[in-house]
Simulated scan of single mutants.
Amino acid sequence: MSTRNTAAAPAAAAGQDGARLLRASLRVDGWGTAAFGVVMLAGGGWLSGPLGLPATWFVPIGIVMLAGGVALGLIARRPRVQSGAAVAAITANVLSGAVILPLAVAGVLPLTNQGTAFMVVGALWVLTFAALTAVGLRRATAASR
């Protein structure tokens, strides 16, 4: 007769699935954020007109996005993703979305239709990854309790 706790197996599997989702969401978010940063850095002069964003915004935003992408990649590469680092990534994404979305639709910037779409897509990106990372973190930590 086996004395293994069979109830623990589904919880462990759920925790592993949560950890995989957490790591994957951080990794994809990191690559996407870094790519966005490169686009902002490389295309700033060219994109300003079509998007209606001030040209002076592209370099600082590009640098921050590139650094953020690298940070997300480093967090995802750790043997165990630390809860605090995941919460920081979630918080940064939620705050970014909370700033970008109102700016995109409030009419305070001279955005073109393409610029509005660009910013709305960016806001949806960060909010989606905030949610995916939060779900992964919740699943990973719930199984370890």
Rank of each mutant, 00 (worst) to 15 (best):
17 D>W: 05
17 D>T: 11
17 D>P: 00
18 G>V: 06
21 L>E: 02
22 L>N: 04
23 R>H: 08
25 S>Q: 02
30 G>K: 00
31 W>I: 06
31 W>Y: 12
32 G>D: 05
33 T>S: 10
35 A>Y: 07
36 F>V: 08
37 G>N: 12
38 V>C: 10
40 M>G: 03
41 L>Y: 02
41 L>R: 01
45 G>Y: 13
45 G>K: 12
46 W>S: 13
48 S>P: 02
50 P>N: 05
51 L>S: 05
51 L>Y: 08
53 L>I: 12
54 P>G: 11
54 P>Y: 07
57 W>M: 13
63 I>P: 01
69 G>N: 04
70 V>H: 09
71 A>R: 12
72 L>F: 13
74 L>C: 11
75 I>P: 02
76 A>K: 01
82 Q>I: 06
84 G>Y: 08
86 A>V: 01
87 V>F: 10
89 A>Y: 02
92 A>G: 14
94 V>F: 07
101 L>G: 02
102 P>H: 05
104 A>T: 05
105 V>G: 04
107 G>S: 12
107 G>L: 13
107 G>Y: 13
109 L>W: 09
110 P>M: 12
110 P>F: 08
114 Q>M: 14
123 A>K: 00
124 L>V: 15
124 L>C: 13
124 L>Q: 03
125 W>C: 02
125 W>A: 02
126 V>P: 06
127 L>F: 10
133 T>D: 10
138 R>I: 12
138 R>L: 14
